[in-house]
Amino acid sequence: MIQWRKYDPKNPPEPGRYFISDGIDADVAIYTKLWDGWSISDDSLINSSNDVTHYAVINLPGEEEA
């Protein structure tokens, strides 16, 4: 099961790749400090970084969450 975390722009995650959600759809995005927000693919169902409500760490088989 994916452990979703509520996204708080005042306390963002570390830069990296994450699952993101707007509460309806989910996608993969990169959180970057360069833009101070989410870099989302143009073909994503999530319209913009302002729509992100939750995120989850991507950990592949054999990886442990830090």
Rank of each mutant, 00 (worst) to 15 (best):
M1G: 13
M1K: 01
I2H: 03
Q3L: 09
W4L: 07
R5V: 06
R5E: 04
Y7E: 05
P9L: 12
P9H: 07
K10H: 04
K10V: 12
K10L: 13
N11Y: 08
N11S: 14
P13I: 15
E14A: 13
E14T: 14
G16L: 10
G16R: 09
R17Q: 14
R17D: 12
R17N: 14
Y18D: 01
S21T: 01
S21P: 00
S21Q: 01
D22L: 00
G23Q: 12
D25L: 00
D27K: 00
V28H: 03
V28G: 06
I30C: 05
Y31T: 04
Y31I: 05
T32S: 15
T32M: 11
K33Q: 11
K33Y: 12
K33P: 02
L34T: 14
W35V: 14
W35H: 12
W35C: 12
D36R: 03
G37I: 08
W38T: 13
W38I: 15
S39T: 05
I40V: 12
I40N: 00
I40Q: 00
S41E: 01
D42F: 08
D43S: 12
S44F: 00
S44A: 07
L45C: 08
L45G: 10
L45T: 08
I46H: 00
I46M: 01
N47Y: 06
S48I: 01
S49E: 07
N50R: 09
V52F: 02
V52A: 03
T53L: 14
Y55K: 12
V57D: 07
V57E: 15
I58W: 08
N59F: 05
P61A: 06
E64T: 15
E65R: 02
